[in-house]
């Protein structure tokens, strides 16, 4: 059986990617399951999708904890514990990362027992046009499995994108095809595990028996206000706005318009962006009447250092 887990962020087409891969495997004669898992259901938030394929009826259900292929469409997910990208990767599993960094680089950083391979999705996009990262990864993943023909793959793309305009489908097919080609040398790298070779692939949870507790303890009332400040949504950001105090006229428009409430004024009336929460929508930069807010790539600036003891 193939057990494939896809990781990405909302908006990268991960759900569609799993559907394309599932359909391509189905067209190649496999029994297939595919299922997305949304989590926060938000653009930018981590998303998961699971594909199983086997040549007989699949009786497994649920999340894939021990994959033989893990696809990571967004390399920044490695920094998010909640994304749990590396879960269950053993010596036989293959990890495919969409990244401009080399596989050796990732091997050194991650110190994993299994094989790591890299798709330079940005390079494919430069050549083939703008296509969601999820679609690119599907092209590479299908080739790594070694059991999906290009024809089946492209048919699956057309089928799953039905309803989109013809030009978009064609661009996607070109990009998927290009990613598929790039992995010709690694076709069949993913080992197919005998289904049933392992009796149980999911680890049963370690149940803890709890006695019934008094209601206020079992279902406590949170009376503290504004607790969402504990959630650092700044992690979503890929680009950051930066205020140039020399150009700023202290009009305060950015503060008024910030949807997050992430901009406050300092003692002198200058706006200060709280990068712990700024999601990087950049509407402040777009609206600043003095063009005093520049935009920088998040990777080129040092990560914010939250102070000790802060919420």
């Amino acid at each position: 059986m193939y057990r494939i887990r896809l990781h990405g962020r909302g908006g990268q087409g991960i759900k569609t990617a799993s559907r394309i891969l599932g359909t391509a495997l189905f067209r190649s004669g496999f029994e297939v399951q595919d299922a997305p898992r949304y989590g926060a259901e938000r653009r930018g938030a981590p998303i998961f999708a699971y594909v199983r394929a086997d040549d007989k009826v699949i009786c497994e259900r649920g999340l894939i904890h021990q994959p033989n292929l893990v696809v990571v469409a967004d390399e920044t997910l490695f920094d998010l514990p909640a994304a749990n990208v590396l879960e269950g990767l053993d010596g036989r599993a293959v990890l495919l990362i969409n990244s401009e960094r080399s596989a050796q680089d990732w091997c050194r950083q991650l110190q994993l027992p299994g094989q790591v391979t890299v798709l330079d999705g940005a390079a494919v996009v430069r050549e083939a046009g703008r296509v969601p990262a999820g679609a690119l990864c599907v092209g590479a993943a299908a080739r790594l499995l070694g059991v999906v023909s290009r024809r089946a793959l492209l048919q699956a793309v057309a089928e799953e994108l039905a309803g989109h305009d013809a030009a978009a489908i064609q661009t996607s097919q070109q990009a998927v095809s290009q990613a598929y080609e790039l992995f010709a040398g690694e076709a069949g790298l993913v080992q197919r595990l005998q289904s049933g070779a392992k009796k149980s692939v999911t680890t049963p949870p370690k149940w803890v028996e709890l006695d019934c507790e008094a209601l206020p303890r079992a279902a406590p009332t949170i009376t503290m206000a504004a607790t969402s400040a504990l959630v650092k949504t700044g992690l979503w950001r890929t680009r950051r706005p930066r205020i140039d105090r020399a150009l700023c006229s202290r009009c305060g428009l950015c503060r008024t318009l910030c949807p997050e409430g992430g901009i406050d004024l300092d003692g002198e009336g200058y706006p200060v962006i709280d990068y712990r929460y700024c999601k990087g929508c950049l509407l402040c930069a777009a609206q600043c009447p003095r063009r005093a807010i520049a935009v920088a790539d998040e990777r080129t600036v040092s990560p914010p250092q939250p102070k000790e003891g802060e919420p």
């Binding site: 504004a226 969402s228 901009i263």
Partner: peptide, 20 residues
């Protein structure tokens, strides 16, 4: 806010899961 954390009760606190 960046110094003391959000405290004013006339503001919605940041950290919500709504889209950027």
């Amino acid at each position: 806010m960046s110094e003391s954390g959000p405290s004013s009760h006339s503001h919605l606190a940041p950290g919500t899961p709504l889209c950027a």
